[in-house]
Design a protein around this nucleic acid. Structure first.
Lengths: 178, 178
DNA sequence: CGTGTCATGTAAGGAGTTACATGATTTG
DNA sequence: CAAATCATGTAACTCCTTACATGACACG
């Protein structure tokens, strides 16, 4: 899975500009894929040259012009080929968990602060994804619903584990004080 | 968080060779950080030049020699600086979830197959992490225990959500057949 | 004597991020 | 008129992966 596959997937349903693609990527996608303009625009240019997509300059009222890209038949074929290729392994990197893993080398306060920070971050992600889901769930195909439910369950599990961790940390600290 | 920070963290407790570092990374670390020899060896060389670590060639019986690296005072200071720096955001990429998200463009069978495949993979990861945890938990500091518990809860939540997803998919398919 | 494990490294390439650069238009 | 939003792009750089290359030693 690379940026090209994701862009093709997004254009399957609706033609979009680079800016709109970036916005979509910050919606439901956000929890299993992220990308920046520095990737999106060059990728779109290359994909146009390779005739996977076509560009159309659209004038807007009250807004700057935009380049709207539409998937070609060749692009659809490429997307289908991606969907039939072997699934790649997930990749997860967490600086938060790395810190926690080495938490014995810093003070109790620091670890507590990290846990609280992660709690806030996960809660925000959960709320955001939940809002999006509640808003759209009646119009989403089952596959997308399952995808989001996996994300929601994951976030809730992380929050539970962090809350339990905070309790364990506090217990340990109280025992030390005795 | 980069490979240098991780290597410094690992050397805080025990001097190790590149090969041993790679093996450790495939243990408990594996679910929130992954790395290859192509990163580890060049990073160790650079770190030695920068005097974050020192190298010692150790002869072994019945095995080839190895280069054992030990963290210096300067290295410890660098590690502490990392631990006090702002925590970076997690990064998660999932080809599996991307496929599922675009699942409406492929057949029912393909989606079911992906879900089963993911189920197997998550179950394997869970079993592996659980075994490691059961083996080591009595000797681990609380911070590491919390770290692993977050991982275990996450895997279990994913498995639950996938199992529910499979049921939902099957229900949908049976309704269609009526 | 072949296969597996232990052990170290390099080189080329891929895929991305960050920072920079620009500019139109709306809204307060 | 300042700030926010909409909109597109480039260039330098970072970091890592994959594939290649080598070789010691053990075990059956």
């Amino acid at each position: 899975m690379n940026s090209q596959d994701v862009i093709l997937g997004m254009l399957m349903k609706k033609s979009s500009s680079g800016y709109e693609i970036k916005q979509s990527l910050e919606g439901l996608f956000n929890y299993f894929y992220q990308s920046s303009y520095g990737t999106i625009y060059p990728t779109l240019s290359r994909m146009e040259q390779e005739e996977l997509i076509t560009k159309e300059n659209v004038q807007q009222e009250g807004k700057p012009n935009k380049n709207v890209y539409t998937i070609t038949e060749f692009g659809r074929a490429k997307f289908n080929a991606y969907m039939l290729s072997p699934v790649e392994n997930d990749s997860f990197k967490s600086d938060f968990l790395m810190r926690l893993f080495f938490g014995e080398y810093v003070g109790y306060d620091k670890v507590i602060a990290w846990l609280h920070e992660a709690q806030r971050a996960f809660q925000m992600n959960l709320d955001r994804l939940n809002d999006l889901f509640e808003h759209e769930k009646d119009y989403l195909p089952l596959t997308k619903i399952i995808c989001i439910q996996i994300g929601l369950k994951g976030y809730r599990a992380n929050l539970e584990a962090i809350a339990e961790g905070l309790v364990q940390m506090e217990q340990l600290e109280q025992e030390k004080r005795k």
